[in-house]
């Protein structure tokens, strides 16, 4: 256990203050970046993917210096990275560690799968209720159709 931690620190350098998002499934690191708008970040961002993880095989990690996320913001990534862990670092110490959690409602992040939905034709921001959190299913507030895990398209 300790060895694993040391190796991880060697691969991706520690941060003084900020947020570490760990245990991201390896294939979705860039989608997480996009959801959190980290491509436009002004602070230092370190990204690693295909790192060894005992629990998940390959994983990704993102470290963002001097940035602390609101729950509402960080929970959006649960859509693509339900296993992600959020770690808050202050003065090199872990002050908070928790799993991301899917919100009950999702606003303007996912495209509705229904091609005839009003949100795909007029300037209407999407809105979904999360009707199944285990086997991800979103119900469109407008057209009432279900967007399921395998056809989620992040706007």
């Amino acid at each position: 256990m300790e060895n694993q931690d040391i190796r991880k620190e060697l691969i991706v350098s520690a941060i003084e203050n900020g947020t570490v998002i760990d245990h991201i499934p390896a294939g979705v690191v860039f989608r997480v970046m996009r959801i959190l708008n980290l491509e436009a970040a002004k602070t230092q961002v370190t990204v690693g993917f295909n790192l060894e993880s005992r629990k998940y095989g390959k994983k990704g990690i993102i470290k963002v210096s001097n940035k602390f996320f609101e729950n509402k913001e960080i929970n959006k990534i649960a859509l693509v990275a339900p296993t992600a862990t959020l770690i808050v670092i202050k003065d090199y110490k872990v002050t908070e560690k928790r799993q991301v959690a899917l919100p009950d409602e999702i606003f303007g992040l996912v495209k509705c799968v229904n091609p005839n939905c009003i949100t795909n034709h007029q300037q209407v921001p999407t809105r979904f209720s999360v009707i199944n959190k285990e086997d991800l299913k979103l119900q469109c507030y407008y057209c009432e159709k279900i967007t399921a895990k395998n056809n989620i398209d992040i706007i």
Binding site: C112, N114, N116, C117, I118, T119, H121, Q122, V124, C140, Y141, Y142, C143, E144, K145
Partner: peptide, 10 residues
């Protein structure tokens, strides 16, 4: 009445 689904809710 509108051809797009969800139009009435909107």
């Amino acid at each position: 009445r509108h051809p797009r689904e969800g139009s009435a809710r909107f």
